[in-house]
């Protein structure tokens, strides 16, 4: 299912996004935010909490259309998008497997998902309801749902927030496992620099409100070589390039 031909990268060019509160006060959230993500690349949007990362993602997901500017999603292949939200957002009244299958287009509903469930360690939990899962397992199910659709682009909104360190670490590894099995153009929002350095090909650093791109940090090191020492080297060179960004 690898897209062939002249595939367009993810191109974002948001001129302005302003929120108007009920009292009529307007707050500019995004201003001249533009960046690109190449085909098959895993990119991170890094910025402090409340800097409009989620707003950007909501615009790209088509959930917020009140903005000026434009963006272009990758074409070719499935043309579908998938998202992993901050909360797992599984339907509590459907089993794990039903949750995953419901996200698939009709003609793929019956496809074999054994390998995916196996990679994510969910094989024994397919018939459980989300309320019976721990938060970590629920997030894995949300990852399974996103990858099952074989999307053209995958958006992740701080998917490992509010997990304890070990579970988050384990989930990051699982994410890399499923992602490597089928490298998909991916954009992940995070405020965790170490996480960004572990996972991504490039880090798009955002400045606080009104949000715009401060700069781009390319991680030119294959993921399998990102040992703790190598990561701390990366961290150092990141801090040299972006002093003041944590």
């Amino acid at each position: 299912m690898q897209p062939v031909g002249a595939a367009v990268p993810l191109r974002v060019d948001i001129a302005e996004k302003t929120f108007r509160s009920a009292q009529g006060v307007s707050v500019m959230a995004l201003k001249n935010l533009s960046f690109e993500v190449q085909q098959g690349e895993f990119a991170c949007l890094l910025g402090p909490s409340g800097c409009g990362k989620t707003t950007t993602l909501r615009i790209l997901l088509g959930l917020d259309r009140q903005f000026s500017g434009s963006f272009q999603l990758p074409e070719g292949g499935s043309n579908r998008i998938a998202a992993v939200f901050q909360e797992p957002t599984l339907l509590p009244w459907r089993t794990v497997e039903q949750n995953v299958r419901l996200a698939l287009p009709k003609d793929l509903r019956t496809k074999n998902l054994d390998a995916l469930f196996d990679t994510l360690g969910l094989t024994g939990m397919r018939s459980l309801y989300p309320a019976e899962l721990s938060l970590g397992l629920a997030r894995r199910a949300a990852l399974a749902r996103a990858f099952a659709t074989e999307p053209a682009v995958l958006f992740l909104d701080e998917p490992f927030v509010s997990l304890d360190g070990r579970t988050a670490e384990q989930l990051r590894r699982l994410l890399l496992d499923v992602w490597s099995a089928r490298p998909t153009t991916a954009l992940m929002v995070t405020h965790n620099l170490t996480e960004a350095l572990t996972l991504s090909d490039r880090i798009i650093v955002l400045a606080p409100r009104p949000t715009h791109v401060l700069g781009v940090f390319d991680v030119n090191l294959p993921r399998q070589h990102r040992s703790p020492e190598a990561t701390s080297d990366l961290l150092q060179s990141f801090h040299q390039k972006f002093p003041g960004v944590t």
């Binding site: 088509g62 579908r80 998938a82 998202a83 957002t89 009244w93 419901l102 287009p105 009709k106």
Partner: peptide, 18 residues
């Protein structure tokens, strides 16, 4: 839930039912 359904392009019938 409605946003999840929008992202994953649920059909109208699926939205009502699920």
């Amino acid at each position: 839930y409605a946003e999840m359904a929008a992202v994953y392009r649920f059909g109208p019938l699926d939205r009502v039912r699920h």
